[in-house]
Amino acid sequence: MTDGTELDPDSGRDLAPGRDLDRASAALRALSPSCGPVRLIAVDGHAGSGKSTFAARLAARLDAPVLHLDDLASHEELFAWTGRIREQVLLPLSRGEVARYHPYDWNLRAFGVPRELPPAPVVLVEGVGAGRRALRPFLAALLWMERDPEESWTRGRHRDGPAQSEFWDGWTVAETRHFSEDPSRPFADTLVRECPGGYELLAGSPVTAGPNQFITERDSARTRK
C-alpha cells in the first residue's frame, strides 16, 4: 500500500512537480473565455528560458494550438509586432473566427503564406513579450518562466550555435530594453520553474496577480518542500 506519491524508479525523486501540469491544465480549462470564445494563455519569459518546451507539454495536455511569437516578429521588428497580432490573430479570435497569420521565415527574411489558428477553447501564445500590456486585456492567464536572463541567454546561445552569435548580441540588447519598458513578470498569474522530473508552478505576485491565478499560496508552499 502506498500514499499515492509517484517516485522516479531510478532516482527515487518525487515526481509531484510533473503532476502540476495536469492540475494546471484543469484549472486553465475552467477559466472564463478572454478573447471571444477563447481562453488565451500566454507563456512568457526570457529567450532561452524553456518557453517552447513548456508550452508544447502544456498544449499536449490541453489539446490546444500554440501561436509562437517568433512567427510574428521579424529581423526588423523584434518587438514591433503588436499591430500584426491584433489584426491577424486577436480580432478574428475575439469574433469566434479562424485567425490567419503570415509566419515569418527567419532564413528567407520574408513572411510566408497564411497559417490558420482556430478559435479553440484554449489557445497558447508563446514567446518573449507574450504578456506585454497590449496583449494582457485578451489573456485569461499569464505564465512566466522563472529563469534569470543571463542563464536563459546562455542556454539559447548554446542551442543556436556560433552562427547565431551576432543575432544574439543584438537580441539581448533589444530584450533588455523591451522588458525595462514593458515588463511581463510583475503581472504573471503563475511562475513556472523547471525542475528535475517536471515543473514547479508557483503563485505570482499577490499584489499584481488577478482572479485568474490558479496556483494558491498554499500550493506554492507545498511545492517548495
Results as ranks from 00 to 15, higher is better:
G156L: 04
D189N: 06
S152E: 07
E150Q: 13
F179Y: 14
P162T: 08
F187I: 03
G198L: 04
R157S: 06
S184G: 08
G197P: 04
S165Q: 15
D169W: 11
L201V: 04
R155G: 10
E194V: 11
T176P: 11
P196Y: 01
E200C: 12
E200S: 10
E181Q: 11
T172K: 13
P186D: 02
T154N: 14
T190Y: 00
R193S: 06
R177G: 13
S165N: 15
A174P: 08
E150H: 12
T154H: 12
H178D: 12
E150T: 15
A188W: 00
E151C: 15
C195F: 05
F179D: 04
P186L: 03
E181T: 11
P162Q: 06
G161A: 15
A163C: 09
E200T: 06
E194R: 13
L201G: 00
R159S: 07
T176I: 14
Y199K: 00
C195I: 07
W153Y: 11
E200M: 12
C195K: 08
W153R: 07
S152F: 08
L191Y: 00
T176L: 15
D182R: 01
G161W: 10
V192C: 03
G170N: 11
C195M: 12
E194S: 11
F167R: 08
G170R: 07
H158R: 11
S184D: 04
R157P: 03
A188R: 00
W171M: 10
D189M: 04
R159T: 07
T176E: 14
E166L: 15
D182T: 03
D160C: 06
P186Q: 01
G156I: 05
D169V: 11
Q164Y: 15
E150Y: 12
E150I: 14
G197Q: 02
